[in-house]
Amino acid sequence: MTLKPQQAEPLSRSRPAGRVGDKPRRARTGRRPGPVTLAVFIIPALVLFALFVLVPVGFAGYTSFFRWNGLGGLPNDFIGLDNFRTLLADEVFLGDLGRLALVVGLSIVVQLPLAFGLAMLLHQRFPGRAVFRLLFFVPYVLTEAVTAVLFGLIFSPRRGFADALLASVGVDASIGWLSDRSLVMFVIFGILTWKFFGFHMILYLAARQNIPDELYEAARVDGATGPQLFRHITIPLMGPTVRITVFLSVIGTVQLFDLVFVLTHGGPFHASETLAITMYEEGFGRNQIGYASALSIAMFLISLVFALGYQRLVLKRDLQGALTSTEGSKA
């Protein structure tokens, strides 16, 4: 992984000169540097990428065809597609998919509109606006695992802050925030909203600020009302960003792990389990590495099918934009 800048220069200068004559317009893409120069620039990233991204993903694919406890050696008990067959009948896995759909649905119906509304709000000029924007984004900066510990204490059944908060407004019920199996996913969704609405809000805000004021002025001159402006200018022009946030939200939710793992470990009895938690438990808790690999391949396929389908049906030309910020997003 070492970089060797000192060697690169002499090597690269050994190639023939004569590029100067290229037309400036073509200069950007028209040059053909020597293979050695190219290699020096490409190899560090390529080796890193191959070793720690491509090989692992490929290896997961390979392992998913075996029964293997992972303790030493290589897998040798080939069982074909058995792991995948088991997977499709596994109620926990199917439940994970249901919970994935639930969180995605809630995000689209609740979280993203909330973020959108707040972005519109913060687009108004009023004193303190910048401070609000700064503060609304704070939860996004916090580490998920740390956030989970904090909310674990807030929703703790007997010393919990959430119960005390309710009691202070006269509701004296001890609510099983994390122990009620029909409630726990909604509590987790609430925490995800707390953590991630700021991210989506910032994206919407930036998109809204990119819409030129002239458009609104021109429409207003033509007699358009506020709601009409919103429907015919704001919504269409922010469409791409909205589509991308939906995309990011889904891809992030597929990978959801840290927050739920620390908060509930996926319990009670799988009620809050996610794909990644099931994979972790099967792999490290039960030494079923083969089966867990099949699960991770399923996760990959879900992301891939969704990404391709969404790109084809919805995003079209927005893809590059989507690609460039998958990193920073969850739910």
Binding site: G283, I289, A292, S293, S296, M299, S303
Partner: peptide
């Protein structure tokens, strides 16, 4: 590639 996919291998 979701990171979680690769973590086991």
């Amino acid at each position: 590639f979701p990171f979680a996919v690769a973590v086991l291998p």
